[in-house]
């Protein structure tokens, strides 16, 4: 990291960005509540995207200024071998862990 630090001080950052991020936080809470209201699956059996989302939420509380990168890595395929075929496949936002 060789760039400048943020040009704004803490009160300025909060003045500029608090409300819009408060709204985003409520959107996430509402999304999770919506999932909880779903009748079809228990929390334990919900699919890999839900589990990946919960793991990412835990990373939000990690200090150190690397939360964004850590969350990106948590959603990423960590393997190195090419796949045999991409036919019918598309990115969905979270790595499924090599399961079909």
């Amino acid at each position: 990291m060789n760039g400048p630090s943020c040009t704004l001080n803490t009160p300025e950052i909060l003045d500029t960005y608090f409300l819009e991020n408060r709204a985003r936080l409520l959107e996430i809470a509402s999304f999770l509540d919506r999932l909880d209201r779903a009748q079809d699956l228990s929390q334990d059996t919900r699919d890999f995207r839900y589990q990946a989302f919960l793991r990412a939420l835990e990373l939000l509380l990690e200090p150190g200024g690397e939360r964004t990168r850590a969350i990106q890595l948590s959603f990423s395929d960590p393997t190195t071998e090419p796949i045999e075929s991409a036919l019918g496949l598309k990115a969905v936002g979270a790595w499924q862990g090599g399961e079909p």
Binding site: S76, D77, P78, T79, T80, P82, A91, G93, A94
Partner: peptide
């Protein structure tokens, strides 16, 4: 570079 969960691996390749 690939999208989303495939980006890290693809960028490295």
């Amino acid at each position: 570079t690939p999208h989303l969960e495939d980006k890290l691996k693809g960028t490295r390749i």
